[in-house]
């Protein structure tokens, strides 16, 4: 079997998810044995102007240049993989959508803001078709490898559609709410093996919400713990603002 050609691209992001792959250690050798990496700005100088089999997209789509560029990449690739929170759910860049676009441009660019057109932040699938999603900020490498295996086999990968609590409970963490700390685990999609909570942190909701959250009950629970709904919405919107785009 010929090795599939794979290319990494970044849009609006910190490129930290690609760094996760670069930091994989020995595991990266297995990835390189299975794929032929033809373009990856963060770790190599070579470029590739022909077609590729798999395009890995990090970052969200935030202006018209990005729209054109992602559409071009989509045409050149068989498989497109959205990678990291920015690409899969819009991520922290989505916070821009809390403001009027002109206001935010003036704030950043001052008087010459008119020379810098911008658009509301979108996740990649809100612009072009996405075949695989690897959620997380940063991505959870074991899940990324699982997705790569699915790509090689030509089978779909389903992001778990249940709460982080499932994995967190199996890891026998003491519930953050028992410690009096607010955590977004109950509303956030699993798949990260409750990585943050295992290490003493809370869940920030970086993997997006479950598809069918019980919002009414969640509100009742927040009331029980005396947590204002605005606080949770603010926390949720840190990563998930783009979910409002229909």
């Amino acid at each position: 079997m010929k090795k599939p050609k794979i290319a990494f691209f970044d849009f609006a992001c910190c490129e930290g998810c690609q760094l996760q792959v670069a930091n994989m250690g020995e595991g990266v050798l297995d990835v390189l044995a299975a794929f032929d990496v033809v373009e990856w700005r963060e770790v190599m100088s070579e470029k590739w102007d022909k077609k590729y089999d798999v395009a890995i997209i990090e970052g969200s789509i935030t202006d018209n240049h990005a729209v054109k560029r992602i559409k071009k990449i989509r045409k050149k690739t068989d498989i497109l993989l959205a990678y990291g929170s920015c690409a899969t759910i819009g991520g922290v860049n989505g916070m821009k959508n809390n403001f009027e676009l002109d206001d935010i441009r003036k704030y950043v660019y001052g008087e010459s803001y008119k020379f810098f057109p911008t658009e509301i932040t979108k996740a990649v699938h809100q612009v072009v078709k996405v075949d695989y999603f690897v959620n997380g900020c940063p991505v959870y490498i074991p899940e990324f490898v699982t997705v790569l295996k699915a790509v090689l086999q030509g089978i779909p990968y389903y992001v778990p559609d249940y709460a982080v609590c499932v994995e967190c409970k199996l890891n026998e963490n003491v519930c953050m709410y028992a410690k009096g700390i607010t955590c977004l685990g109950p509303l956030t999609r699993a798949g990260c093996n409750s990585w943050c909570i295992n290490n003493g942190n809370i869940c920030y909701g970086c993997r997006g919400m479950v598809s069918n959250p019980n919002e009414k009950s969640a509100q009742d629970i927040l009331a029980k713990y005396n947590i204002p709904i605005e606080l949770i919405m603010n926390k949720m919107n840190m990563y998930n603002k783009c979910r409002e785009i229909v």
Binding site: A163, C165, V166, K169, P186, P213, N214, S217, A218, I221
Partner: peptide
């Protein structure tokens, strides 16, 4: 109406 479907009840 109250259940969050987090699966805690069955996992434990």
């Amino acid at each position: 109406e109250r259940c969050l479907s987090c699966g805690n009840c069955t996992n434990v």
